[in-house]
Computed example of a mutant assay.
Amino acid sequence: MNLVKKNYNNFPSIIDEFLKPDWFGGLQNFQTNMPAVNIKEIDTSYSLEMAVPGKSKEDFIIEIDHNVLTVSSEVKTENEQKEENGRYTRREFSYAAFRRAFTLPETVNTENINANYENGVLCIVLPKKQEALPKPKRMIEIA
């Protein structure tokens, strides 16, 4: 299984240094949070585990196109604090998104892929095709 990696942090480090001070009551952070991934292979399947805490299963989009498995998520939030006269004293928008793509080997049975999300971990099970499963050991008699 190959991992297709993209780097979305295009800001030079000098700009990051200017954005570190707490000028307006909050730390400015423009880095994209890519979830950590564990890929495990056993005899009958591959297992892909992604650490994505604080989300619900409805936040994820899992797609397969031409043997490429794509997992993505996009969450938008808005917080506002108001004064008594109705003027905004502070209004913050937040946007968090990621997209990870994995090239699947030909041995994966793409029709029977399962996914579940529990305790902040998205687990995708990629079963192997029947012909890719290991054959049992057999004895050969000497004639």
Rank of each mutant, 00 (worst) to 15 (best):
Q28N: 10
F60C: 06
K57R: 12
P12A: 03
W23H: 12
E49M: 10
K20E: 15
I42F: 04
G54S: 11
K57D: 15
S47C: 02
D16C: 01
T44F: 01
F11Q: 13
Y46K: 10
M50T: 08
K57W: 05
E17C: 03
D22L: 14
Y8C: 02
D43W: 09
K5E: 01
K20H: 10
D16N: 09
W23T: 05
A51T: 09
N7C: 00
F60T: 05
L19C: 08
E49H: 01
I42T: 15
P12G: 07
A36Q: 13
G54P: 13
I42M: 10
K40G: 10
N9R: 00
S47R: 06
S47M: 08
L48R: 05
P21V: 05
F24I: 11
I62R: 08
I61H: 08
S56A: 11
E49K: 13
P21Q: 09
P53G: 05
L19W: 07
M50C: 11
I39G: 00
G25M: 11
F60L: 06
E49I: 11
F11V: 05
N38L: 11
T44Q: 02
N29M: 03
I42G: 07
D16A: 02
I15Q: 10
S45C: 11
I42V: 15
K40M: 11
P21T: 08
S13N: 11
I61V: 14
G54M: 12
P53M: 05
I42K: 12
M50G: 08
K6G: 00
N33K: 14
P53T: 08
D22H: 12
I61P: 03
K57C: 04
F30D: 01
N9Q: 10
E41F: 04
S13Y: 02
N38R: 04
Q28W: 06
F30S: 03
K5I: 02
S45D: 13
V37N: 03
K40Q: 15
E17N: 12
I62K: 11
F24W: 05
Q31D: 07
G26W: 13
P35W: 03
N29V: 03
S56R: 07
K57H: 10
Q28A: 12
A51Q: 14
E63Y: 02
K40D: 14
D59Y: 09
K5D: 00
K55C: 09
K55A: 09
M34E: 05
F24M: 06
N33V: 07
E17D: 14
F18R: 11
T44D: 01
Y46R: 09
Y8P: 00
